[in-house]
Amino acid sequence: MISIANLLSEERLPGNYFAHDVYVKGELELGLLENRRGDRLLAIPDTFIAAIYSGLDRETGSATPLVLFNCGKWWGKNFYVRFCEEVKDYYGYGVAQMEMVEFIQCLEQLWKTHGWGLFTFDPSHYHHGFLVVKISNSPFVRQAPNWKRPAGFLEAGILTSFFTQLTGRELTCIQTACESLGAETNYFVLGVRDRLQNVESWVKEGQNHEAIMTQLCA
């Protein structure tokens, strides 16, 4: 017999920690933005993102994508640590103990609340050893120069280190569809490096995301 008293023994039923209406707080007098546990947040205008691209292009030229990817990796490392801390503080259990759906919803909500676009996690290729992430309306991609190739290098870097730490396996991430090339959304594929080695050339040939996934999972 199910006892409601037992179900409610903890009284707290945690919900959507990263919900935007409670997560972001502003202090007008000090001009500060904070999250709900008092960590500083930084708001950056589109112009600033555009300036990062043009500044990098001037300083590093054709190495810009690689620099962005590595910046993303570095940032993603700290981002993962903060994500785990916040989740544990609020839910009372760690990321590893979370139900899959809770974890995914947290990540999707966090992405949206931070204004990084709409993040959707697609686990349907998981049994083939690949994770697919879809990010729509990315502010980073929107400002990217016209490279004639997928431009979400910052995000690919972030996803690489986030999921590498999460899974404990050395993963890499390659973008297979990009809003800057007219695609409806941005697709990113994560997997071990050896198994993704052909993806970049398929992307260069102009194959779309679905075709690439079909070949990968064949």
Partner: peptide, 8 residues
């Protein structure tokens, strides 16, 4: 609406 759509 927010709590239900975005979480539950």
């Amino acid at each position: 609406k927010l709590r239900l759509q975005e979480w539950v």
